[in-house]
Design a binder for these strands. Structure first.
Lengths: 185, 185
DNA sequence: TAAAATCGTTATCTTAAGATAAGAAAATGA
DNA sequence: TCATTTTCTTATCTTAAGATAACGATTTTA
């Protein structure tokens, strides 16, 4: 964190005293559908994945890697979760009750403005992502991902990428083959 | 606003003194691509639309109706806008410099926690929308919209709805015909 | 009010994605 | 290490979306 903001010793101590750091194995499920949890996650190293299961099919809608945080919908609204969260790789992350975030927020005023600015930026980024997704065709979405998050294509299984891109694994495979063909010419 | 939070006279005066209320005609363009503006919008009555133009084609990615706010990406990052914003209907809205929001935020501490909570909720809603969009087929997206925002289908032109749903107008038209056929049986 | 532009639908053809099946390659685990 | 499971690819068939064109209907505006 000190990469991003400078903290006093007091602040560091407070954060460390919370004992929220976890190291979890690949495949571990952090949150299941129907579960009520008020925890939020922040990835320090590794990758976690958010997915739905409909008709027995996994539908991946987001990945979170280094320095990205996931505050599940269920933690905000205090309702059972609609989706699952699991680890794509061995992952080190913080797991903290959502109110701890609010406590920190109250204790350290200088975090407050940062929070507004950050959450605005996050919201804006989220919206741009959504816009891009809507505007692009499946093939363009894959090419965009290749541009913007080449790491994901390396570290995440194809079938999870596929549903993240809004298609089935076979279509992604075919699409990749088609692109390879084109680039040969 | 007093529908949502109770305000003191002081607070009301401050807000009214800002003189940010605007009444704009249908079709008015509030923001153009390339323009640098630091204004954010909040719709009191009517409907505004956010859209891109690529290869001369309009691509609508969002609508904002009563009690919904749009803080453009360009206002947050202070960069030229990538997209356009225009009025779908005659609309009454507030137009305010983004810093005014921050000023209010600083002046009235009780807005601060609300802001964190609200922006978290907004972010969560945004993410759920995105998830839904990714998971659903074009036809399912239309049926979802019919469920969740039936007003939009009434008040917005078909071709704008189409790109909002990620397809061309002819496909939406065909899809609607297909649904009508099915429901007849 | 008349001409022009915009809008929604329908039809045909083309292209690509979904469904299903099957086989090869890689990873996992006992 | 070897068997099992998972993952990725390829192929065929079906279905639906994109491209293009054309035609009224509606709206705009000159």
């Amino acid at each position: 964190m000190s990469k991003y903001i400078s903290l006093t010793e007091d602040e560091k101590d407070t954060i460390l005293s919370l004992d929220i750091f976890r190291s979890v194995k690949k495949g571990t499920i952090l949150l299941k559908r129907g579960q009520k949890s008020r925890d939020e996650y922040f990835v320090l190293k590794g990758c976690i994945r958010k997915y739905y299961i409909t008709d027995g099919e996994e539908k991946t809608t987001a990945f979170f890697t280094e320095m990205e945080g996931l505050t599940p919908h269920c933690a905000i609204n205090n309702t059972p979760s609609e989706y699952f969260v699991s680890c794509v790789e061995d992952t080190i992350l913080t797991v903290a009750h959502i109110d701890i975030g609010v406590e920190l927020f109250i204790k350290f005023p200088k975090l407050q403005l940062m929070c507004k600015v950050l959450s605005n930026e996050l919201l804006a980024k989220q919206q741009l992502n959504f816009d891009e997704f809507k505007i692009a065709s499946p093939e363009e979405r894959y090419l965009n991902l290749l541009q913007n998050r080449p790491d994901l294509i390396q570290r995440v299984p194809q079938h999870q990428l596929a549903s993240f891109l809004g298609m089935i694994p076979q279509s992604l495979s075919r699409l990749r083959a088609r692109i390879m063909e084109k680039s040969k010419e």
